[in-house]
Design a binder for these strands. Structure first.
Lengths: 147, 147
DNA sequence: GGCATTTACTTAACAAGGATAATGAACTAG
DNA sequence: CTAGTTCATTATCCTTGTTAAGTAAATGCC
């Protein structure tokens, strides 16, 4: 009965390798973000708005896997700094629609440029085929998490 | 001159997507722990002791990129739970040598196993081609970090 | 239409885990 | 032996997460 065992081991090995690689890369990227006044969570919200457009508060909380109160506070802070605006939903007065301001958009561009500097450098040193693999992997990982 | 700009934007977007995906997946994997009451930081300390052997408190703080007081608190908690022990350094009475207990070793094994279990489950729900992509991506990410 | 329930967000209170500053004990240099 | 340095700890504060409770708007049932 070598076949099932071998398959199980391969599967387990694949999972281990992915887990270790993801942890290491996350850790490495995190160390690169030394100089920045904006926290990860705050930046992630602006980035989500930039990539996916306006959200209600609840949608943002769900997307970032964070409680609604936590998202309220984050949004308060970002609103005070002028990076986004709240407005009432036309059809549902309970909902708050959150929209990126031009200033917020600018901050995302600028911050992303600085934060991603290390990743871009690393991407520049691998082949286009490898970059393509990573891009597809990123999409798959997003789906694994979203599930 | 649209081509260079478009390329630069794609590159930046690629880096952003990868960073976000890796952070999210790492976060999700991190939620799978053997001991629910143990934080990621605490587990990281046990894992460091497991992989690299006994450390002084300062060495642990440096390795985890954390202040000495923060590490003191983390170690206090882990010591109270019996996962590690403090002992005086033979040659330098100021230093505190921190050693993993058998129980601590067990927690590391169990947690690694559970994290892999979640990843394996997630891998089971995607196609073989996607698994292959992730496997290749894991190898590429390891190389990016190792560089 | 009016009242109860549900939904979406906010406020309040609290816990975890990070930081710096200050304290204490042990080593080292002069 | 005294002065200065280093390692760990304690004290205090900040950020960011949580759950519980409160408010306002929408929905559903007579």
């Amino acid at each position: 009965m070598t076949s099932p065992d071998a398959a199980a081991i391969d599967h387990s090995r694949e999972a281990s390798d992915l887990r270790i690689a993801v942890f290491r890369l996350a850790r490495r990227m995190r160390t690169q973000r030394a100089v920045d006044s904006m926290s990860d969570g705050q930046f992630a919200v602006l980035a989500a708005l930039w990539v996916h457009g306006a959200h209600t508060l609840g949608e943002l909380a769900d997307r970032e896997r964070v409680s609604a109160p936590a998202m309220t506070r984050t949004v308060n802070c970002l609103e005070e700094n002028g990076y986004l605006t709240r407005s009432a939903d036309e059809n549902d007065g309970r909902k708050v629609v959150i929209t990126l301001t031009d200033e917020g958009r600018g901050v995302v561009d600028e911050t992303a440029r600085r934060r991603d500097a290390w990743v871009e450098e690393a991407l520049a040193e691998i082949t286009p085929a490898e970059r393509e693999t990573l891009a597809r992997a990123a999409e798959i990982m997003q789906r694994m998490v979203a599930r």
